[in-house]
């Protein structure tokens, strides 16, 4: 039993990591999906082809948004910080749900 404990922890840790990977994969899909985030329309993202240039490239997100809540708010509704933002207010206009934004934020933090 004593010997099994570290093994058990490892299994739990691995499944948590797998869950993180899965979230990031779904978040990436939402980021690129034209009917969801469609973020590539305006932002350069990783190796996404033919990115738009209306918004800044999405990189170093942890440095630019150390506060997760701030990044989530920015994706959810950029008009809170800047009323005339050209970025669609994804949550206020029902394009993305709060959960979907959470997944996108998970992915953005890998950039």
């Amino acid at each position: 039993m004593k010997n099994l404990l570290p093994l058990g922890l490892l299994v739990v840790a691995q499944s948590l990591l797998a869950a993180d990977d899965a979230r990031i994969a779904i978040g990436k899909e939402m980021t690129f999906d034209r009917a969801k985030g469609n973020c590539l329309a305006c932002h350069r993202i990783d190796d996404g082809e033919l990115p738009g240039t209306l918004g800044p490239p999405l990189l170093a997100m942890k440095v630019r948004f150390p506060d997760r809540a701030a990044l989530k708010q920015q994706v959810c509704d950029a008009t809170i910080r800047q009323p005339d933002s050209r970025m669609p207010p994804f949550c206020r206009h029902g394009i993305l749900t709060g959960e979907e934004v959470d997944l996108i934020v998970d992915y953005l933090y890998t950039l």
């Binding site: 590539l40 329309a41 305006c42 033919l50 990115p51 738009g52 240039t53 209306l54 008009t79 050209r86 669609p88 207010p89 206009h93 029902g94 394009i95």
Partner: peptide, 21 residues
């Protein structure tokens, strides 16, 4: 619209920029 764009958002403010290609 649901995307919250004015004509001017694209054709004044963002003129010359790329939306994808």
């Amino acid at each position: 619209g649901q995307l919250n764009f004015a004509c001017a958002d694209c054709h004044v403010t963002s003129v010359g920029q790329y939306v994808r290609a």
